[in-house]
Design a protein around this nucleic acid. Sequence first.
DNA 1: AATGAATGAGTTTTCATTCAT
DNA 2: GATGAATGAAAACTCATTCAT
Lengths: 203, 203, 203, 203
Amino acid sequence: MKRIDMNKKKKRESLLDSAFSLFINNGFHKTSISDIVEAAGVAKGTFYLYFKDKSDIRNHLISHKASLVFHNAYRSLTDSGITDFEEQVIFFIDHILNQFSEDRQLVLLLSKHLSWGMFKNFLSAAELKDSENILGIFHNLLSEAAYTYRNPEVMIYMIVELVSGTSYNSILYGQPLPLEQLKPYIYDTVRNIMKNERVKPAH
Amino acid sequence: MKRIDMNKKKKRESLLDSAFSLFINNGFHKTSISDIVEAAGVAKGTFYLYFKDKSDIRNHLISHKASLVFHNAYRSLTDSGITDFEEQVIFFIDHILNQFSEDRQLVLLLSKHLSWGMFKNFLSAAELKDSENILGIFHNLLSEAAYTYRNPEVMIYMIVELVSGTSYNSILYGQPLPLEQLKPYIYDTVRNIMKNERVKPAH
Amino acid sequence: MKRIDMNKKKKRESLLDSAFSLFINNGFHKTSISDIVEAAGVAKGTFYLYFKDKSDIRNHLISHKASLVFHNAYRSLTDSGITDFEEQVIFFIDHILNQFSEDRQLVLLLSKHLSWGMFKNFLSAAELKDSENILGIFHNLLSEAAYTYRNPEVMIYMIVELVSGTSYNSILYGQPLPLEQLKPYIYDTVRNIMKNERVKPAH
Amino acid sequence: MKRIDMNKKKKRESLLDSAFSLFINNGFHKTSISDIVEAAGVAKGTFYLYFKDKSDIRNHLISHKASLVFHNAYRSLTDSGITDFEEQVIFFIDHILNQFSEDRQLVLLLSKHLSWGMFKNFLSAAELKDSENILGIFHNLLSEAAYTYRNPEVMIYMIVELVSGTSYNSILYGQPLPLEQLKPYIYDTVRNIMKNERVKPAH
DNA sequence: AATGAATGAGTTTTCATTCAT
DNA sequence: GATGAATGAAAACTCATTCAT
């Protein structure tokens, strides 16, 4: 990569880093583009060389950070050697929640976007390759599962909303319980949802 | 109530109505105080006689609208004569979801706020009397229940997050299923959560 | 008029005066709204209470200044007692050119707009009452004229374009002749145009 | 011409062509240098190798396009064999108006600049050789004319302003008459101006 | 209590111009 | 000659808030 391209990438990442930090600390709406460029140490016009507007840089941030989280979880899952589908789901969730609890800023950034709508519309298209696409992964795992399920899409929908909804307050405020104490309740419920949605053994 | 108080109340309600409609149609951040006062037909300064700022009027709106929803659900529940705790919970949820599906604007206003955090911090303090406080109601019902539960607060937390998370997309976009088709899945899961959290028969 | 309305009118006129002076001295495109409000001694937001944008204030200026010029010329014409149509036209033109040569700033403001298109589309609608509308005046005078003309609209069109085109350089730069020396040529030509377009005596 | 000069000329002309098209379609002030270089397919810095700024390229465009128009008209005039001065003037005007009515973009570009000031200050210096200089041509023709005229410079001034002023709206908007219908009025008037300015037969 | 004119800091966005490569 | 990333001044416009009436 040429020197100038290195520099370009550096500027872009400097903007992304600054925006991330400001969005987290002050909130999206209270962060101005002036704030971002000042923190990044670049001129105001430079922002517009890399991003269309404030929403654009947020979307890039979200898809970038989310893709990292899922990529990590998926790699660990592959390494883990777990073969049972339902245990794979639990492992995957656990890995993501652990990443979140170690980086609460991630939760703040992704919180309102980590919903089924994001998986469906956003992640599928954006920065993830097909094999890393969260729904694609899910369907791959599903095809190897020991059971078939009443409505897998609804099942994952309920799991996603339950997990993202319950983990948010727990990680950020320890309410109603700290994450480690809440996990057993969540995982019990997730297991129950899957068990309950089983139709019959596959094959 | 004196004539002047009537007038005062009228202005306040006009502001609330206008703000509601504008928040719903244009979004909170794209609605200015100028927009609100213009729609309400009052002068700009008048806004500040009744509300501190834009967030203040939103909070009043949310607590007001939410209190109506819960009040309706609770009254119907009382009228229903249902005595079994778990069926009371289902009835209560169903009543609220029906109100939401008949008034999608309510969902748009309350969506991001209809979470356990709202019940805990917001509703308990705001406009609801003690007997109408959602958590108070819940504990009253619970004390008459046939079972005791492992951790009732965590249980209601999971139910609230599951129901609010899953119903949002369903009501607004019919995704991944229209509400009426999604309900069986939700209620099954809610029943399972409660069943699974039972510790022993009370008494 | 109330004190507050006086004040409003004063602010508006202060903005118009400042804009006029800046447009003349620096040109429309090199004048910013910041310049205007600073010169007028009002806050930036105040500008937008009175005018939509920079073009808006320019249009108000043009129509205001033009209406003054025509109003003056028409009043003098009425006072003059001249009855012959062709002499009325000459008198009217002469009066306007005299106003311009005494206030070259007016020429700078109106120059590119003092065309037949302006009479047709702009002045007719804007600030002039019907009886002061330039085309209305023209047709009134025409109806009393001793002759009818081949195509009065084309005739006035040619006169307007000839007079406005030739007077501009003459007034501003004395080229190719100072106005007073150019006038005989212009008036000769205008008289010739009218004479040439005569069809027959009216009645 | 060397290959590199070809290339250089090509870039310059590409910039001129792009600027012409953008000025016509979007207007001078709404066209940015970025727009021009993008349309021309060259880098931003390249613009400044050929032109000083936006006004500079416009001036080059105007003088270039205008010189083409006059050159064409003059060549045709020479070919026509017309010897009478006043008919030469009419022929020359007619040829130019025909070019304009076949290329309305030319009118848009030249409109506000096709005035006597342009002939005097601009064209005489710029791209036209002496024998193609419009005023030079005029004086050459004049020296062969059958009459002398009161003030030939004022005469041409009036003709130029009359013709350019009246043709603009007619060509672009068909107002107050389409060009072909307006021409008789214009040419009548031009002939009258010349006839009226005759002093005596030459020689 | 009610008004609404006035404020001016703050925001987004554009764009001519430079200069290291 | 050619490039195009970077600049940052400057532009238009918004809007929550105040306060004299």
